[in-house]
Amino acid sequence: MVAIEPLVLLVLALGPGVFWLWYFYHRDKYEPEPAALIVKVYLLGVLVTFPVAFVEGFVGLLIASPLIMGVIIAPIVEEYGKFTVVYRFVYRDAEFDEPMDGIVYAAAAALGLASLENVLYVLTAYVTSPTLAFETLAIRAIFSVPAHALFSSVWGYALGRAKFTAAERRPGIIFRGLALAMMLHGTFNLLLFLSDIVAYATVIFVLVLIPGLWILANRNIRIALRWQRRR
């Protein structure tokens, strides 16, 4: 394959994150959020990648198992990092005024992290060969990049529900949403890990987990949009 300029590859690697950000932004069809705030949360998602990577790297010095790191530590640290962006910087904002907003802002933060992660994976693959870089780009654009938004949409929906629920119920709703997102993220990573070892892991990944994530996200979006229409 003909060599490609790194700058062009960088733009291509950012493309999936931007596309999925556009997709989730436009799912909020009744009262879209301010574009500037969406971009802010997306960029904060990019920035939170650095402390997330630091924590994962530090824990990795203590835990030698790639399986534990990928299936337990990474999902916990990454989902909590993305959650912190939304909870700290936008949850109390006046623009966060309906459950659907939680899904949109969660997706924005998640796709910020996923975009930088995607750039690193694609550029690393490019060092080996341009062909591998494009294969990595294609696979991650379909699976890994949107998956980050799908995981985080779970706790995003929980945040949206919690904000308009009695105060004493909020911590439980948020905790369950965050825990479920971490579990789904861990399951995703586990199936990827097992796909090189167990043949049916790939089948479960493609035919069960990925459709299930989309079904759950669309279900939450439908409920959130119905809430908007009843206002």
Results as ranks from 00 to 15, higher is better:
Val90Arg: 05
Tyr87Asp: 03
Val71Asn: 04
Val85His: 01
Ala108Lys: 04
Arg88Asp: 00
Gly156Pro: 13
Asn189Ser: 05
Ala141Ile: 00
Ala94Glu: 07
Phe89Cys: 00
Ser153Pro: 06
Arg88Pro: 00
Leu132Trp: 06
Val127Ala: 15
Ala74Lys: 05
Arg88Thr: 08
Asp93Lys: 08
Ile173Arg: 09
Pro99Ser: 02
Glu78Arg: 05
Ala138Trp: 07
Pro146Asp: 15
Ile173Phe: 09
Phe83His: 08
Val154Met: 14
Arg92Glu: 06
Phe188Arg: 01
Gly70His: 04
Gly102Asp: 11
Glu79Val: 00
Val127Tyr: 12
Leu150Val: 11
Ala141Leu: 02
Tyr105Trp: 01
Val71Ser: 04
Gly186Ala: 02
His148Phe: 15
Glu98Trp: 03
Pro75Thr: 08
Arg92Ser: 06
Ile174Val: 15
Ile173Ser: 11
Ala108Gly: 01
Leu150Gly: 08
Gly70Tyr: 03
Val90Pro: 00
Leu178Ser: 11
Ile174Trp: 08
Val85Leu: 01
Thr128Ala: 13
Leu159Pro: 08
Leu190Met: 10
Met183Tyr: 05
Phe89Glu: 04
Met183Pro: 00
Leu194Trp: 07
Ala133Glu: 03
Pro171Asp: 13
Gly172Leu: 09
Asp97Leu: 00
Tyr80Met: 10
Ile139Leu: 15
Trp155Ile: 14
Met69Arg: 12
Ser65Phe: 07
Ile68Arg: 09
Pro146Gln: 15
Tyr80Asp: 00
Ile139His: 12
Gly112Tyr: 12
Arg88Cys: 00
Ile103Leu: 10
Gly186Tyr: 10
Tyr157Arg: 12
Thr128His: 08
Leu159Ser: 13
Gly186Asp: 03
Gly112Arg: 13
Ile73Trp: 03
His185Gly: 04
Thr165Gln: 14
Val127Gly: 02
Gly70Thr: 02
Arg176Ala: 14
Asp101Trp: 07
Glu135His: 06
Ser65Ala: 08
Ile103Glu: 09
Leu194Tyr: 04
Leu120Arg: 02
Val90Phe: 02
Val77Cys: 06
Phe83Lys: 06
Val145Gly: 12
Phe151Tyr: 15
Ile139Asp: 09
Leu159Trp: 12
Val77Pro: 05
Ala108Ile: 07
Met182Gln: 04
Val85Asn: 01
Asn118Glu: 08
Thr165Leu: 13
Asp196Tyr: 11
Ala74Glu: 01
Tyr87Thr: 03
Arg140Asn: 10
Val77Asn: 05
Val122Arg: 11
Ala181Asn: 10
Leu132His: 09
Gly172Met: 10
Pro171Val: 08
Phe193Leu: 09
Ser195Val: 09
Phe143Gly: 12
Leu111Ile: 07
Tyr157Phe: 15
Phe164Gln: 06
Thr187Cys: 13
Thr187Asn: 03
Glu98Val: 01
Arg161Leu: 15
Leu194Gln: 03
Val77Asp: 05
